[in-house]
Design a protein around this nucleic acid. Structure first.
Lengths: 254, 254
DNA sequence: CGTGAATTTGATTTAGCTCAAGCGGGGTGG
DNA sequence: CCACCCCGCTTGAGCTAAATCAAATTCACG
């Protein structure tokens, strides 16, 4: 089975066999994690990088009144995160939504691999740029779109992301292990607003969602109503993931 | 006069004299930019990096209906941006809010300097982590805080950022060249909601804002009501900006 | 089975939107 | 030099999407 991180990074850069081996050598022992378990909490000093192997995770911030804002979803292959170990303390927490598995990577080893394998470094860099682009698009969701449209947009995004790592295909249902309350914490809505928006999407024949399995019946229409433009995910390299400009690539290569 | 980018990066890492010279050598000829002028538009292929020398800039996305979401503010010393030249096309635009000046940096030269000056590279990396952290905090603003609190939070943030580059000091007014409509595009509010929230902040004796000059009369109270916690800006290195953990620093140093 | 969590539905309230009108000041052109 | 105009700010009066409150129903799991 192809390593989940290799698969993800191959979406961002062409990797050699030794690149692939280097990536695989990063991983330590895997650890299973219960649903809801924190990998790290806001304010803690991170000393290792987690790689999510199975299940979904999420970044979050807690408000003094107990409200929660979800800042990102992590799916298999995502690092949590490549670079935060540079900073003294986490400014947010990371937890699992569903039971899953992670492996830990030591910062030192990661830096070593990045030094020796520029293509890997570039792929990691790229991937963190995509994370930032997603954050910007979520800002648009919260700032400009109403409940119905922002939910539609989020579902489109998750479908594209899952497809990019081989966990979803056109026309088939895929796993979306989120409660309506968690969707609400993502979009700044109450659970009841999420419920009604979901009803409407179902009524419009756009999606089915039951038992945490989401089916998107009409991706084009769903994208159209929500203004979803997949370019921000930078996934257009050979139809999958975005390519580098040649000159920049060469420059990076030294 | 100390170079604006040097000053900013010194907030993130201790730099040697040669580091400082390398940074200054990056800059080409400066160009003045009119208020409202685009540096780059969404969808374009970036081929250079801009460094903002004077004035305020902002990142934005346009909606099909003409609505605008502001994604970030850029103040003197900010790069727009260090790394986006890796990606094929901009997924957002960058423009100036006020008349200003920029200089352009070639990607190749930047990569060369980063290779030769690891401390500079780390400072740039750090600074992009802070940008991401700001994005996360804005998400909390839009998702969880009401108009009054999110406006208060944003004003706190801008005060801290301006202070960190020496453009504001405690008790004194500083330049905030934003219209109420632009504040609205930032916080997902209409201009009239912004106006009323500003009135209330003024009425509470927290701020004065006239002629684009903002005075914060009671920073503690303003921070308290909005739940502002400056740690996400990672500015605590010797009271200014956050320090690296020793071991990580050494690891990065190779 | 039973219990707590997740979903659904309904009724009411409200923060912020929309629409609209007035005001002030700075820049432009006659 | 003045008149005009445009833009940003302010204020007022409804309106509406989503919040809040509440309860019923279904579901997952021990």
């Amino acid at each position: 089975l192809p390593h989940v991180l290799v698969r993800k990074l191959e979406g961002f850069a062409e990797l050699s066999e030794t690149d692939r081996q280097a990536i695989e050598s990063l991983c330590g022992k895997t650890r299973t994690v219960r649903a809801g378990e924190d990998l790290i909490r806001g304010g803690e000093r991170p000393d290792k990088v987690f790689l999510l192997l199975e299940g979904w995770g999420f970044r979050y911030k807690l408000m003094p009144d107990g409200q929660r804002q979800i800042l990102a979803y992590l799916i298999p292959g995502d690092l949590c995160d490549i670079h935060i170990f540079v900073l003294k303390r986490m400014d947010h927490g990371i937890a699992l939504l569903s039971p899953g598995a992670v492996t830990t990577i030591s910062p030192g080893k990661l830096i070593e691999v990045m030094d020796r394998h520029p293509r890997v470094q570039r792929a990691l860099w790229w991937s963190s740029l995509v994370d930032e682009a997603i954050l910007r698009e979520w800002l648009v969701n919260l700032g400009q779109r109403d409940a119905h449209d922002s939910l539609a947009h989020l579902l489109c995004e998750m479908w594209f992301r899952m497809r990019a790592v081989g966990l979803a295909e056109a026309g088939k249902p895929f796993s979306l292990p989120l409660t309506q309350a968690q969707l609400g914490d993502t979009l700044g809505l109450t659970p009841v607003a999420v419920n009604r928006a979901l009803q409407r999407l179902r009524g419009e024949g756009l999606i089915s969602l039951q038992d945490k399995q989401l089916t998107i019946h009409d991706p084009e229409r769903l994208a159209a109503i929500s203004g979803f433009e997949p370019n921000y995910l930078h996934l257009d390299r050979n139809g999958q993931s975005s390519g580098l400009e040649r000159q920049t690539l060469d420059a990076c290569e030294r």
